[in-house]
Each structure stands twice: as C-alpha cells, then as structure tokens.
C-alpha cells in the first residue's frame, strides 16, 4: 500500500463533486483498500460544519461509487463541454444498435448497387442520402424502449430526438462516407451526398413534430427520389453535385435547422403517442 492518504480538503472537494474524474477515481480506488482513509473521512465529516456530520459525505461517496461509469468517448464529450445531461442521454442510446446496423448495411448496399449499375452516379446520389434517413426512421419508430417512460417527463422531446439523431448520424454518415471513399467508381461522389443527406434528415425531423416517424421519413425519402429522378429525366442531375446545387442544399439545411430550433411542440416530437 502506498503512503498516500486522502486529506480533508480533498474529501470535501470530493463530496462537493469538484474533483476531476482522475482524482475522483483515485479517491474511490484508494478508499476501498485503506481503512485509515475511511476513518479519516468519518472524522473530517463529523468535524465539518458545512457537511453537518459524516452521513452526507458517505452518501456522496456511495452515490459516486454507484454512479454509472461512462465509456471513454462519452467522458471525452463531457471534457470538451457537452452538458452532462446530454451525455447521459447519449449513453442511453445503446438501444440504437438496429439503426446503426441499418446504417452500415444501407451504406454497403448503396455502394454495391452503384458499383453494379450503368448509372453509378444516379444510383449513389439517389441511395446514399437515404441511408442516414433510414437510420433516423429506425431510431424513432420502434427502437427507443423507454418512450413510454420518456413521454411524460418534462425533458424536451425535441432535444431528445435531436440527441438520438446525433448518435445515429455519428455512425450513418461516416459509414456511408467511408464506402464512397473505398469504392473507386464513387470517389468523385464521396462527399457531395452529405448536404442532401443533412437536408433530408432535417426535413424528417421537422416532419416528426407532426407525423409518426415512418411517415415523416417516408415523405422526405419520396421527395428526394422525386427530385433526383426529375433532374435525371431532364438531364440536369449534375446540378446536385455542382456548386450552385450544393449551396442551395446548405441554405435549405440551415433553414430547416432554424425551423427545428424554433419548434415549440414537444408532445408530437418523435411521433409521440396521440
């Protein structure tokens, strides 16, 4: 055992939740093996008028020891300033395995289809932006096991939807982009689908404030298919990948973002129960 022991100031900082994660972990690990520090904690707490006895300190110790440990990538998010409640919501997104599987599968499928048809550009531009949309639909339609518990809470359902979307897109977008980079015939298109995908996901989220997820994503997806096939039939498909087209997508995505931020309805978000 080392000669180090937890001093009173460190105990008080620990109880108040002011220690950083490394110091907190060090205290917790040490106290489990050091009877002297357990005694010192008791003495310090009993003498401290701020704590009013050792019981609050022990409560804090127990609470901290029992508190859920976040994976490394979520601890990193907290360190870079993401609010703790957002990190907890993201940590609960482990149930998004189905949307993530759909995202990866959809990305691979869109690449395979594009690589085996004569019009690779058309096929990829049509399918790639639908992959994140598919993942968003799956994330909200049936995969949140806690919807019944979440619905009657004061937490903004729109914020919950956006956080789950972020967790979904964090897998869907890189997966689709990676496929675009890896498949030689799609190199030129590896990035141009990103803004359309952002527009489609934004449109679906706006529609989610009014419609169930399958309808919202279905409408957005059908709209995208109509746009792409319409441009193809008129010989203007290149507009999607050109500077003007990409700028237009950026503007639409920004406008949809503003609409989302200003949306005030929460009961209907996520296609909630009527």
């Amino acid at each position: 055992m080392s000669g180090w022991h937890v001093d009173p100031a460190t105990w008080q900082a620990y109880a108040a939740g002011h220690l950083d994660m490394a110091a907190q972990a060090a205290v917790e690990t040490h106290v489990t093996t050091c009877p002297a520090c357990r005694d010192s904690a008791r003495r310090v707490a009993e003498d401290d008028p701020m704590t009013g006895g050792y019981e609050p300190v022990w409560e804090a110790v127990h609470a901290a020891i029992g508190a859920p440990r976040q994976p490394a990538h979520l601890r990193w998010l907290r360190r870079v300033g993401v609010p703790d409640d957002a990190v907890v919501v993201l940590a609960a997104a482990g149930d998004l395995r189905l949307p993530w599987a759909l995202a990866v599968g959809g990305a691979v499928l869109s690449a395979v289809v594009a690589a085996h048809v004569a019009r690779a550009e058309l096929a990829y531009l049509l399918l790639a932006p639908l992959v994140p949309l598919l993942a968003v639909a799956a994330a909200f339609e049936a995969t949140d096991p806690l919807r019944e518990l979440a619905a009657p809470t004061p937490f903004s359902k729109l914020r919950l939807a956006l956080l789950r979307t972020a967790a979904t897109l964090a897998v869907a977008v890189p997966a689709t982009a990676l496929v675009g980079v890896v498949v030689p015939v799609l190199h030129a298109l590896a990035c141009v689908w990103l803004l359309p995908a952002l527009c489609l996901s934004g449109a679906a989220l706006v529609l989610l404030t009014r419609l169930p997820a399958r309808w919202a994503c279905g409408v957005a997806g059908a709209g995208w298919a109509a746009v792409v096939l319409g441009l193809e039939s008129s010989g203007h498909l290149g507009a999607v990948t050109g500077g003007v087209g990409q700028t237009a997508f950026a503007l639409v995505a920004t406008a949809l973002g503003v609409v989302l931020v200003r949306a005030t309805t929460t009961l209907q978000a996520m296609g909630a129960t009527r």
Binding site: A16, G17, A60, A63, A64, G66, A67, P68, D84, D85, V88, V89, A91, A92, G94, D95, P145, L146, E148, L149, A150, T153, P154, F155, L160
Partner: peptide
C-alpha cells in the same frame, strides 16, 4: 417497462432522472 438490458440499474435511473430535469450531477 422495456429496459435497455445493457444498462446498469443506476444508469437506468440516472437516465430517467436526467429526463426529469435533475441537472446538478452530484
């Protein structure tokens, strides 16, 4: 209640506490 089975007991209650606007972590 359909639980996310990979969550810990404390993680589950912590998540609902966040939904109930307990913003102060300690």
């Amino acid at each position: 209640v359909v639980f996310p089975r990979g969550m810990t007991a404390a993680g589950f209650v912590d998540y609902v506490a966040v939904l109930k606007e307990w913003r102060d972590t300690p």
